[in-house]
Design a protein around this nucleic acid. Structure first.
Length: 732
DNA sequence: GCCGTGTTATTTTTT
DNA sequence: ATAACACGGC
């Protein structure tokens, strides 16, 4: 049994799997088989050491990572032929969860001493911001003078350090902290009044609960004989403390991470946790996984040269047994459009000449704004693409609106959700009326929903005009009726009732074409609620809301879909592709300009670059544009300093002019090609096609004695046509 | 109370 | 360029 589980692992990996007594730090370089080690370790614990699965806790950062781990352990379904490590039946005993989901479940069960009911609501960033605004208004702070966003960031940072409002008050030392302090306690009061917690509270409150209620902690400590934390370099202090607390009894804490891939310090992740771990667990064993199974020698070598320039790091040198591989291609394009064009031409070449699949290709960039030129390029050339999580489904307005209705049914104290939908669709409850309602609720110290109830029952009639009062009564009655429905209807029908009886459906469909899209989203949302069908209505609703709050990216990995992947460097973490293009390799973009005045941030940019490069298995392209549109203006760019750090012998630099396929690999020897026959059309020309109508020439390449022109038609279609055959005529 | 115009800011965003 | 957001006029 033991041999099967250890099969195919290298010595260090085996060491990491077999060291089960006491703390363990696994430093896992990119592509070093980290997930493999974690899953095998769990299997080893269960099958060899006889540990009950319910006494193991595995924590990841993303739901995706958690799901992946589960699939590797148990297979995708009960009948999955891919040899699973553990029996399907153990699936629900073993906890593989994110920190946040784990904390949420702890707080739902144990939150009473903190004043939390089981039905508390989890606020996302948008909700948080709106509470900050309310708190600022109460504190009479001008949102123009103090950015709510910045205040929220500071509060969030404090929570990540386990500093609650009271603790913060004692620490105030600067003008800014004084301001934040004024908002912080009001912010927390409001959350408490709304029976809500934010993401940071999930961690902080769970941690404080354990600290102040040792009896509760003890129950969990006893249970978890083994604790595993993945992506340890991205933990913040609260998460580290939680891990320490949970593993406090048995001390079998295994953490896995790579300081070189820490790219979330701006989300308050703290690499120092790795150092603290070694301090707090001086007997910890440390295993370094240095063999890389992913990338070619050249790619790994280049990446190492990039990261080596960082001062703050745990030195480790990776190696691969793979061949040298192809040189890294560095290319300069004229501007971002030609950058995209060059990438796509190269993709096309790879597909034709090397039978590469589009699924093998990823294009990575620093900021989301860069995706635009790439998307447009893909549309022009008809290249299918997958855009990773640019606009998150659950954050779309229409989805959040429906969620707000649903939340209110579970937690009527949720004022943020109430204010969100009180006048959506417009039902004649304007700001004037709302303000008055808010004022009354505050004076009485009651939730808005309760205040609405009083109004509808005829109290305080003097303060409201009768139209407003009638509208509020209607709303209150609507919510009462929906609340009744939520007890007995299944989720999809409940959602139907919500959008129908509130008038929301009609409201968004009135907005024309865009509204139809929105409506489609709502219907997709409704469909996603169907899988909770086997639960009681009420349970289904709470379970659904929990998932909606804690899972943001469930659908955006359709690995089966054909197309190239467009993603930010941050989102690329944990992924791998045979072919990687990193675009925007320019100063101010890849080391981002905001990192220029802080050496620590600059090191993070370097790590980001390292993460991107090490995603590549076989081929890596580093591309930059000479000119780029930045916020309306147009600027010239300087090559990224990171490019200079790659030894020249690893790089192939095609000529700056458009490289043809042949010239790409042997350009110095290639004879200059004859100038191609002049085309009657060139890029940008307006043309008319007998069948497709008007369009613009977006590309024109010689093809034999003919020209192949690509035309984007106004009707939306993009067609490739042979000039001599296609009935095209120029239009002025 | 609603709508339109002006103003502002715009890195990354696992939860 | 763009889009969210606030303010002021109708």
């Amino acid at each position: 049994m033991a041999t099967a589980i250890l099969e195919g692992l290298n010595l260090q990996q085996q060491e990491a799997v077999e060291h089960i007594e006491g703390p363990l730090l696994i430093v896992a370089g990119p592509g070093s088989g980290k997930t493999r080690v974690i899953t095998r370790r769990i299997a080893y614990l269960v099958k060899v050491c006889g540990v009950s699965p319910r006494r193991i806790l595995a924590v990841t950062f993303t739901n995706k990572a958690a799901r992946e781990m589960q699939e590797r352990l148990f297979g995708k379904s009960e009948k999955d032929p891919g040899a699973p490590l553990l029996d399907w039946g153990m699936r629900r005993d073993l906890i593989v969860s994110t920190f946040h989901a784990f904390c949420a479940s702890v707080l739902r069960r144990e939150g009473e001493p903190l004043g939390l009911t089981r039905d508390f609501t989890i606020y996302d960033g948008e909700d948080q911001l709106s509470v900050v605004r309310q708190a600022m208004e109460e504190a009479e702070l001008d949102p123009k003078q103090y950015a709510p966003r910045a205040i929220l960031d500071t509060i969030s940072g404090a929570k990540a350090q386990l500093i609650d409002a009271e603790g913060y008050r004692r620490l105030v030392q600067s003008h800014w902290e004084e301001i934040v302090q004024q908002v912080y306690h009001r912010y927390q009061d409001r959350l408490a009044g709304n029976q809500a917690v934010d993401f940071d509270d999930l961690l902080m409150k769970a941690c404080l609960l354990f600290r102040d209620h040792p009896d509760v902690l003890e129950r969990y400590q006893d249970r978890y004989l083994h604790t595993l934390i993945d992506e340890f370099q991205d933990t913040n202090l609260a998460q580290y403390e939680l891990a320490r607390q949970l593993a406090g009894r048995h001390r079998n804490l295994c953490v896995v991470g790579d300081p070189d891939q820490s790219i979330y310090s701006w989300r308050h992740a703290d690499i120092r946790n790795i150092l603290s771990f070694q301090r707090d667990f001086p007997d910890a064993k440390r295993v370094t996984l240095a063999e890389n199974y992913r990338s070619t020698q050249v790619i790994l070598d280049a990446a190492q040269h990039i990261i080596a320039a960082n001062k703050e790091r745990l030195e480790k040198s990776l190696f691969t047994r793979r061949d040298e591989g192809r040189p890294i291609v560095v290319h300069e394009a004229y501007n971002q459009d030609e950058e995209a064009q060059w990438v796509l031409q190269e993709v096309d070449r790879l597909r034709k000449e090397e039978k590469a699949s589009l699924k093998d290709v990823a294009v990575m960039y620093r900021v989301n704004a860069q995706s635009r030129a790439l998307e447009e390029g893909c549309l022009r050339y008809g290249v299918p693409y997958k855009l990773v999580g640019a606009l998150r489904f659950y954050q779309r307005r229409e989805i959040k609106d429906v969620i707000a209705y649903l939340r209110l049914l579970v937690n009527p104290q949720d004022d943020v959700s109430l204010l969100r939908v009180l006048n959506v669709p417009p039902r004649g409850i304007g700001t004037k009326t709302q303000d008055e309602l808010v004022r009354q609720a505050r004076d009485l110290g009651i939730p808005l929903m309760e205040a609405l109830g009083r109004v509808s029952k005829g109290a305080q009639e003097a303060a409201f005009p009768s139209a407003g009062r009638a509208a509020m009564t209607r709303f209150y009655e609507l919510m009462t009726a929906l609340s009744r429905a939520s007890q007995e209807q299944d989720l999809p029908s409940l959602i139907d009732q919500v959008v129908e009886r509130s008038g929301y459906r009609r409201h968004i469909l009135e907005e024309g074409k865009e509204g139809e899209e929105r409506w489609d989203n709502v219907m997709e949302f409704r469909a996603s609620a169907q899988e909770f069908g086997d639960l009681e209505p009420r349970e289904a609703l709470t379970a659904f809301l929990e998932r909606v709050a804690l899972v943001s990216d469930q659908d955006n990995l359709d690995e089966t879909k054909e197309g190239i992947t467009l993603t930010t460097l941050h989102q690329a973490k944990g992924l791998e592709f045979p072919v990687v293009f990193m675009v925007g390799m320019e100063e101010r973009l890849l080391p981002h300009s905001r990192s220029f005045d802080d050496p620590a941030e600059m090191e993070e940019e370097r790590r980001l670059c390292y993460v991107g490069m090490t995603r590549a298995k076989d081929r890596l392209y580093l591309v930059r544009a000479f000119r780029r549109n930045v916020m309306g203006g147009n600027q010239t760019g300087v090559p990224s300093r990171f490019l200079q750090d790659i030894p020249p012998h690893l790089i192939l630099r095609p000529p700056p002019a458009k490289a043809s396929a042949e010239a790409l690999w042997d350009w110095s020897a290639a004879p200059r090609k004859e100038p191609s026959p002049k085309s009657a059309l060139s890029v940008g020309d307006h043309v008319r096609h007998a069948k497709f109508g008007e369009g613009i020439v977006v590309n024109c390449v010689p093809s034999g004695s003919d020209h192949e022109v690509t035309v984007a038609f106004k009707g939306g279609g993009v067609k490739r046509l042979l000039l001599s055959y296609a009935p095209l005529e120029p239009v002025e």
